[in-house]
Design a protein around this nucleic acid. Structure first.
Lengths: 215, 215
DNA sequence: AGGCATTGATTGTTGAACAACAAGGGGATT
DNA sequence: AATCCCCTTGTTGTTCAACAATCAATGCCT
């Protein structure tokens, strides 16, 4: 495996991505090229490359001759994301091999989520839960699907940033993830997939309701 | 819906994409920034944006400090692409609503493929078949899934470009697509999905065999 | 012949420049 | 006073030129 140096553009993209998901740059906010380039300490040209990257990931929106804005997740966004999750995660789990190496990742994610719950660190709980679902997709052994899913997850976290009460958003799902993991490890993929499907339906409803409360 | 001007970068990307898929730029070929920028009549900066776009789509490969190359599809690529196709297309068809508007697109694609067969235009047959499968994904109503699938399709066409005997590659599937369409229209989604799954297994085997013959 | 430094070429990144475009303000007209 | 048009102003889109960093190959020395 070759180690490849990150490159300034991707490194800057990571920083900006964190700023966006972390909420320091609110959705809808306009990003001035010259100002942001100065703030980040990079050139305008490289910043534009960063913009291309994050636009492709769905975190930024680009309006020609007007500039780039932090993407504003809508209800349609949420619905679409959960459609994708259902379509990918459920079959991935249903066809999974119970001794796949990704199961270890799932296990680790559940543990991390439970540890973060002890400290009431709901943001970390959210991250760990996302990691759990990324691990589910890893069960497919498809690099393309994993890359695609990572983008979708990033968009979903952006949407989560808009909502308050992260506890209601993440806490109830920690143990459900544990349940899914146990079922899979016991070779009951079909039941695991059922639980996951119900999980997704439930989660989508909660998120949409929280969204509706924002207007 | 706002009409957005193509922008020089995306326009150039389209041109380069056609050159790659069309085979005028063979896989593995190195693309010199300065030379290609001169040939295409654009600046080095914009060409680099084009590179980012096509790299993201999987058509180019970027090695840091070495340059960009036309991607070389490997057997692993093929296997991964078909894994994605199975995981996405089959459930999409199984859960499809038989009167979805995308069914019209499927119908049109089959007709186009049959017309192209009359003229022995196998390249167009391939395009029409791909359009058929893109329409299957459109049954999900997920814009993200459709975008992702478009990329996968582009990569697959790049791989097809390496193989000869396009007739063997595309002709056998025209009528199978027609069969799938008829089953879906008749409300037999489950059987349609079965036929599609068999279709994909078969197609993957043929492509891999053709690939193996190249060494 | 083999290892090593030098050289040449290419990429990575920056800064400045100018045209194209969008938004807002001011003035003239009705 | 309200409306429309033009113009100013700031921003993006694109190009050019330059330099540092890195890689590949050449040729030299042992």
């Amino acid at each position: 495996m070759v180690i490849e140096p990150p490159g300034l553009a991707e490194e800057t993209a990571s920083r900006l991505r964190n700023d966006i998901i972390g909420g320091s740059l609110p959705p809808g906010h306009r990003l001035s090229e010259t100002r942001l380039a100065a703030d980040l300490g990079v050139s305008r040209n490289t910043l534009r490359e960063v913009f291309r990257l994050l636009t492709r990931e769905g975190l930024l929106r680009h309006e020609p001759n007007r500039g780039v804005f932090v993407a504003v997740p809508s209800m349609a966004t949420i619905v679409d994301i959960y459609r994708v999750r259902r379509l990918i995660e459920v079959p991935a789990l249903a066809h999974a091999w119970p001794r796949h190496e990704a199961v270890t990742r799932m296990q680790a994610a559940v543990s991390k989520a439970r540890a973060a719950r002890e400290e009431q660190d709901w943001r970390s709980v959210g991250s760990a839960n996302m990691e759990f679902h990324a691990a589910i997709v890893a069960l497919t052994d498809s690099t393309r699907l994993q890359g695609f899913f990572a983008q979708v997850i990033a968009e979903l976290r952006l949407a989560f940033g808009l909502l308050d009460s992260p506890e209601r958003l993440h806490e109830p799902y920690i143990d459900r993830n544990g349940e899914i993991l146990d079922l899979l490890a016991a070779g009951q993929q079909a039941r695991a997939a059922e639980v996951l499907a119900a999980y997704l339906d439930n989660s989508e409803r909660v998120v949409l309701e929280a969204f509706a409360r924002l207007g």
